[in-house]
Design a protein around this nucleic acid. Structure first.
Lengths: 345, 345
DNA sequence: CTGTTAGCGCATTCAT
DNA sequence: ATGAATGCGCTAACAG
């Protein structure tokens, strides 16, 4: 009989009942041994432990959590695993190590119409049992009435009822544009993110504030929607760069958008930074690997994650936690920005 | 005294019983509506759906998976979220989007003594119930008797019983050394990884094969144990570089080790690549950010992840899957390697 | 000290 | 078309 690779049909999981049978005791007794509760004779305990070892038994997270409220697991809810969320995960992972908690990152992977409300759905699916608390990454709606502690990272709706951690999006936008201004640029375009997201609005606000402070009136034709996406940003960048009076610099609302801009520039034969300067936002690892390496506003992603964990742990202990934490951004100057080209008329 | 419906909003999860009561039907009826099974009058169906909407009810992943075998969730088991595993996650996430499956990445976060065997434990905790299949990242032991389909990525024990995906470690080692040979180096050291890991053995084998092919006898004093770790590698590199007849190039078994070598070289005042060439392995994002940027053998991490998903999906469909997939590596030449210094006697 | 009883929230027969 | 009964694997209370 050759079952080859894969599941072994018929061979199920080892359950507590299997252990009980093999050890010749009742199920609750095994449960007690597993959970280190007293009220079990040393000899039985030893025998049960031996059987557990032999059979390789491990309690089912599911069954246990259905019964008892605490699971010792923190849930991280994301739509998908992309650079932004995985960087957060690293920070979360580091900050959680040694606390006794385990991590369970859940990606609904929804696309299109089902997407809005994903965080409510996912939270509801896991909550009440599987996880003791949750960190939700860039939720699109407020998670008001949850039965477990929740911390939101970079919520799309801005700091509202629940605990949040985010970066100084507006300040970062200001820094990006001031950097370009200092290099002599005056025609600075902005490829903004999704208009319904707080972060996108704030970055655009920073862009406008910096220009206003420099006494420059915003040319609204230079402000386009890139939707935080590479492809869409490449398209609008193409439009921007083929204008008669094209901008000499672009502030993209995130790194994906900036990469789209770089692509459009390359397709048009424009050199970066000689002909065009580009600034991104986020500083995902990929930003350092573009050609040329991308100047960008760095969000302290790993730290956003670790701060969220700290807040959640505090809430889990039942102590009061600060409601909103905002971390500073840092301008990371690489090689996609340079002085304004003199040849531009 | 029974609490009226909605009397205590926000307290506890909304369960199927709440919905049933509010809709004036029995629990099984609600279950049928939720799961799109027929045998429900259109009018009741509508009413139930309305109540579900109102109450924001969502089936509990836990309760459902305890009852029915299929959950539509794929589990990713890792020890922690660090660059290697998060890069894999990205590939896995992309490949899983649109398949109807959701992703659940689980990190046990164990340290020290509990660590060996983590994959067995985690698998057992989630298997049989929560997840339909699993991808285990760099397991240290064989996962023989699992009740669900399992694919291992870069297993430390090498391809054994179960399905595996890994990169061509030996070929990558050959490429690294041939690159150095082509630059004129002949005294090439190797800082190898943990001797008990398949990947480390294979990379060393590649090193030896390339030297042998070039007719060079391996000077065993140039082969040291860096344990895949930066600190330990920095120590052994210091020894190597202070030898009377020091090597002009070092092939480090992974990027962490290479970074350790760079540190040791800097501490000794050796310039890279003028005085010493260094090659790493993995191409984690950090490799591009060292000084100078590291020449390294790139593993296609995201692709390793997506291939693992494809294999798992095949197994989940009950079709036969290829047991072992090995992906090619790519030499990524950056600036930590150069011609052999002529001043060397 | 140990086993019996009773759910946790849900899906599945099998009645009605 | 609908509802009562049963069990998934486990733990919390109690009974013996």
């Amino acid at each position: 009989m050759d079952t080859a690779i894969g599941a072994r049909p018929g061979v199920g999981r080892v359950t507590i009942a299997d252990v009980a049978r093999a050890a010749g005791v009742s199920i609750p007794t095994v449960s007690k041994v597993i959970n280190q509760r007293d009220g079990v004779a040393p000899s039985t305990m030893l025998r049960v432990q031996q059987v557990v070892e032999e059979l390789g038994y491990e309690t089912s997270l599911v069954a246990r959590s259905l019964r008892s409220s605490r699971t010792g697991v923190i849930g991280i809810l994301v739509t998908e695993f992309e650079p932004f969320s995985t960087e957060l995960l690293r920070g979360i992972s580091r900050a959680t190590t040694g606390t006794g908690y385990e991590l369970l990152a859940y990606a609904g992977l929804l696309t299109g119409v089902d997407r809005p409300g994903w965080e409510r759905r996912s939270l509801s699916r896991l909550s009440g049992t599987l996880i003791d608390g949750a960190i939700v990454v860039t939720p699109t709606t407020a998670l008001s009435s949850s039965s477990i502690p929740v911390v939101a990272i970079d919520p799309h709706t801005g700091p509202e009822g629940h605990a949040t951690v985010d970066a100084d999006n507006e300040g970062g936008g200001v820094d990006a544009v001031e950097h370009l201004l200092a290099l002599g640029h005056t025609r600075i375009a902005h490829v903004h993110g999704r208009a319904d997201l707080a972060s996108a609005q704030l970055r655009e606000a920073g862009y406008r504030r910096a220009l206003a402070a420099a006494g420059i009136t915003v040319d609204e034709r230079l402000v386009r929607d890139g939707g935080y996406q590479e492809d869409q940003s490449a398209r609008v960048a193409h439009e921007l760069l083929t204008m008669p009076d094209r901008p000499t610099a672009v502030f993209a609302a995130n790194d994906s958008a900036a990469i789209g801009v770089l692509r459009a520039a390359a397709a048009l034969g424009l050199r970066v930074p000689e002909d065009l300067s580009v600034v991104g936002f986020d500083d995902v690892p990929q930003a350092a690997m573009t050609n040329p390496p991308l100047t960008t506003v760095a969000q302290p992603l790993a730290e956003l994650g670790s701060r969220a964990v700290e807040m959640l742990l505090t809430m889990l202990r039942g102590e009061p936690a600060s409601a909103h934490v905002r971390l500073p951004t840092t301008l990371r100057v690489r090689r996609s920005t340079g002085p304004v080209p003199r040849t531009t008329r």
